[in-house]
């Protein structure tokens, strides 16, 4: 097995009295696509957000690409360049063009000159099929295009792992395909990915491993076929039959 890019151990997260993560372990190997499913409130988004410390875990340890994320001596801003994140609501900067969105961190964090950053940024936009939209502001783009710009913003920094937090949930059904297409290309290029999503079709044919979470714990995990066709837990079975009913 390839080296682990992400190694999370015993993650706990409390929001006040709410215990959202109750001891979660997660290993993600290089080039692996791990798909996280589970009912809402199961802690899957919180788990993802802990992996780049947008949420501070209450307990546990996280290693990403050999960096101890929870060590106070770790430069979190430096580490976050290696961890791309794509959000449900895109979160593009509305006052900047698509290219501006993609190049901001390249210039401010990676220390590239404007010329270098623009070249890398255009390449990233090319990769998500939006090379001709570099000068458009988010308001001039469809939801699917906005999400692809958000993906370009992440991949431009050449992350070692990318986290997707329900990347297609805010999209009209006809726009989902374009975003999933970009994610599939990324996967084929060998990007390590952790995806929280309800796109079961995508999970079935693109994921290496599916993780089912409920009430803050990983109930079971395995290859997509095993989880979808032959789950060993009742809760997994109930969730999957519910999802597939419509």
């Amino acid at each position: 097995m390839a080296a682990a890019i992400v190694e999370a151990r015993g993650l706990h997260k409390h929001f006040g009295a709410l215990h959202v993560l109750k001891g979660v372990d997660l290993d993600v190997a290089e080039r692996e696509l791990v798909f996280v499913i589970g009912p809402s409130g199961s802690g899957k988004s919180t788990l993802l957000r802990c992996l780049n410390r947008l949420e501070e875990p209450s307990a546990g340890s996280i290693m990403v690409d050999g960096i101890n994320l929870l060590d106070p001596r770790t430069d979190i801003n430096h580490a976050r360049q290696r961890i791309g994140m794509v959000f449900q609501s895109f979160n593009l900067y509305p006052h900047m063009t698509a290219l501006g969105n993609v190049t901001l961190a390249l210039r401010k964090v990676a220390g590239k000159s404007r010329g270098e950053a623009d070249a890398i940024g255009r390449q990233a936009l090319e990769r998500v099929g939006l090379g001709d939209r570099a000068g458009h502001t988010p308001g001039q783009l469809s939801g699917g295009q906005q999400q692809r710009v958000a993906i370009a913003r992440s991949i431009a920094l050449e992350p070692r792992v990318m986290l997707f937090d329900e990347p297609t949930s805010a999209l009209d059904p006809e726009l989902v395909g374009s975003v999933l297409g970009v994610m599939r290309d990324l996967r084929d290029s060998g990007m390590t990915m952790v995806v929280v999503s309800h796109e079961m079709g995508f999970a079935r044919n693109a994921a290496d491993r599916v993780l089912f979470m409920d009430e803050g714990v990983v109930v079971e995990q395995g290859p997509p076929a095993a989880i979808f066709e032959n789950p060993s837990h009742d809760r997994t079975r109930a969730f999957i039959s519910q999802i597939q009913r419509h």
Binding site: A79, R80, Q81, L104, A105, K108, V109, R153
Partner: peptide, 11 residues
């Protein structure tokens, strides 16, 4: 989300 997006890219 604007804060989170920017911080997640290392800003």
């Amino acid at each position: 989300g604007q804060w989170e997006a920017a911080r997640s890219t290392g800003l």
